[in-house]
Structures are given as structure tokens and as C-alpha cells.
Nucleic acid binder design. Structure first.
Length: 287
DNA sequence: CTTTTCTCCTGTATGC
DNA sequence: TGCATACAGGAGAAAA
């Protein structure tokens, strides 16, 4: 469940360990990891042979290595890890890709238990954004992020505010954990309808989303089920600072009411029943 | 067109 | 003990 802060921690680790290095070989295990690379895994490996990594960039939860003017786009899915390790380290059970470099150790490995993540090589388009990322909106930390515009689009929507927060084409980087945390901070129930919330309220939720992700980044990210680690295999500490996510049945840090868990969008949602009252049932339009 | 639901995947935890 | 089931959930395809 890496979200923006966790992906940014990984991006920084890669910037420290692979930028400026030349790839001599990419070994891919199986077809699935490169399934979004249409020409196939062999083509991906062949085209990366000999290239030098110029930079590591990110938008939302997407990460990419700039190589020869193209982008090796990496998405971690929900369990992907990019690990910097010596070549002699034991091979992980779910290691799907290994990069060897001209200067030897360390290697870069892509390990992914649930295999929702993947790699693909694609052209870089307008504003330096790779084609597979073009449909993803700016995240709250980018200069291109226009929160007033996001609020404007949310006001037009009749869907739940949590659904909007998770819509990466509206604002990127927010996943289930930080959506629940932002809503808790804003004291808004995630099933409140966007169009019925005031613009200041929508700004408040987005301000909190940015703030909570910024704090998480400062603590090295959140590691909830130990699947998420940085490039050195270490976990972040933000889990200890969560107020809503994963805290069902424990007292709200603001009012003491017991945090509830509800299923929404086939996902768990956590909120305070007192601070974040459920919206009234919506009346169906008259027939 | 917009919005919602389904599906991909595997390890861990829980219940009978 | 063993088997079945629930759960974790990002994002794109498919459906509504």
C-alpha cells in the first residue's frame, strides 16, 4: 500500500544509489512484471542494456527512471519494493526483476508479492511526464498542482468525497490510508457528497491530505503490514502517528469515541462516529 | 461522456 | 490439524 510518501522515500533512495550508473543487464523473471510493456519483457531488457540512469522522478504514486530520454516507469502496486542489495544477497521469493550495473554492486531489485506492480519503458511527453502517467493529475507537492481547480471539479461531482480523494485523475498520491487520515483531520465522513460540501471544507480536506502526507514523509513513510520498506529494507515510523486508519475499536484521539470501521468501495474506511457523523441518507429523486 | 463495479494477486489471520 | 474464507488495495478494464 505505498502511497505518495512511501513512493517518495523510495525515489530518494534510488536517487542516492542508482543515478549516474550504467545498466549492463536487466533480468526479468516471468512475464507479468513487464505486462504493461507492450513489446514484451525481452524488448524491455534489450532496450535497457547499456543505458545510464540520468534521474529519478515521481508523480503521485508513479515513479520513473530517466534513461536515454525515455522513462522506465515503475508502479509499486500494493506490495512492490525496490531494493538496493549486493549481488550475493539471497534471492527473494518474489523478486521479479534484477538490474546489474557496470560498476558492480549493489544491484537494484524489484520484489513484489502481490504482483500488482510493474515496469514499462515509454516516451516522455509534455512537461516531462511519461505517456503512461499522462492521465494522472499533479500531486499536492508539485508546482503544477492547482488546488482551487481541484476543488472546482469536486464541487461538480455528486460522488462521495473519499472516492474523489482516491481518484488519481483528480489529485494524485492519496491512497486509502491518507484519505482516511485527511478526512479524520477535517472531521468529515468520507461518504459525504462532494457537491454538498462547501468550497472551504473541500480545501480543508485537501490541505489536510497534503499536511498528513508531508508529516509521513518526514517520518520515512508508513509501514502498516511490513510489506512497504525503503530501498534499504527499513520501515517508516508514521504508523504510530495514525489517528483513524487501522484503529477500529480504539478511542478517537480527539474525543474518545471508538473509531469505527465501515466498508466503502470494497475497502475498509476508518472514522470517528462522533467527529465524523455519517451523512443523512440521500433521498432518491422523485419519480 | 461520466461514474461505478469488477478483477488482477498472494500471504496472513480467523473460523469451523 | 486441515480446509475454507476474509482481508489487505492500486488502478485499469469493463459495465452501467
Amino acid at each position: 500500500m505505498p502511497e505518495l510518501p512511501e513512493v517518495e522515500v523510495v525515489r530518494r533512495g534510488l536517487a542516492d544509489h542508482v543515478v549516474g550508473r550504467q545498466i549492463t543487464r536487466l533480468h526479468l523473471a516471468g512475464n507479468r512484471v513487464a505486462r504493461r510493456h507492450i513489446p514484451g519483457p525481452d524488448d524491455l531488457a534489450a532496450r535497457l542494456r547499456g543505458v545510464t540512469i540520468a534521474a529519478v522522478a515521481r508523480r503521485g504514486k508513479y515513479l520513473w527512471l530517466v534513461v536515454d530520454g525515455e522513462a522506465l516507469v515503475v508502479h509499486l502496486g500494493m506490495s512492490g519494493q525496490l531494493l538496493i542489495e549486493p549481488g550475493h544477497a539471497p534471492l527473494e521469493r518474489h523478486c521479479h526483476a534484477r538490474f546489474d550495473f557496470a560498476d558492480g554492486d549493489p544491484q537494484l531489485r524489484f520484489v513484489d508479492q502481490r504482483t500488482f506492480g510493474g515496469l514499462s519503458l515509454a516516451p516522455i511527453g509534455a512537461h516531462g511526464i511519461p505517456e503512461p502517467v499522462a492521465h494522472i493529475a499533479p500531486d499536492p507537492f508539485e508546482p503544477a498542482y492547482d488546488q482551487a481547480a481541484v476543488v472546482g471539479r469536486m464541487k461538480q461531482r455528486d460522488s462521495a468525497v473519499k472516492r474523489a480523494l482516491l481518484d488519481q485523475s483528480l489529485v494524485s498520491g492519496i491512497g486509502n490510508i491518507y484519505a482516511d487520515e485527511a478526512l479524520w483531520r477535517a472531521r468529515i465522513h468520507g461518504e459525504r457528497v462532494c457537491s454538498t460540501l462547501s468550497k472551504p471544507a473541500l480545501h480543508r480536506v485537501l490541505d489536510h491530505a497534503r499536511a498528513v502526507m508531508d508529516e509521513a514523509l518526514g517520518r520515512g513513510g508508513t509501514s502498516f503490514d511490513s510489506l512497504y520498506v525503503n530501498v534499504n529494507g527499513a520501515s517508516g515510523y508514521f504508523e504510530r502517528s495514525l489517528h483513524a486508519y487501522g484503529r477500529a475499536g480504539t478511542p478517537c484521539d480527539r474525543c474518545g469515541a471508538l473509531i469505527r470501521r465501515e466498508v466503502f468501495m470494497n475497502r475498509s474506511s476508518h472514522s470517528c462516529p462522533a467527529c465524523q457523523p455519517r451523512p443523512r441518507p440521500r433521498r432518491r429523486s422523485r419519480r
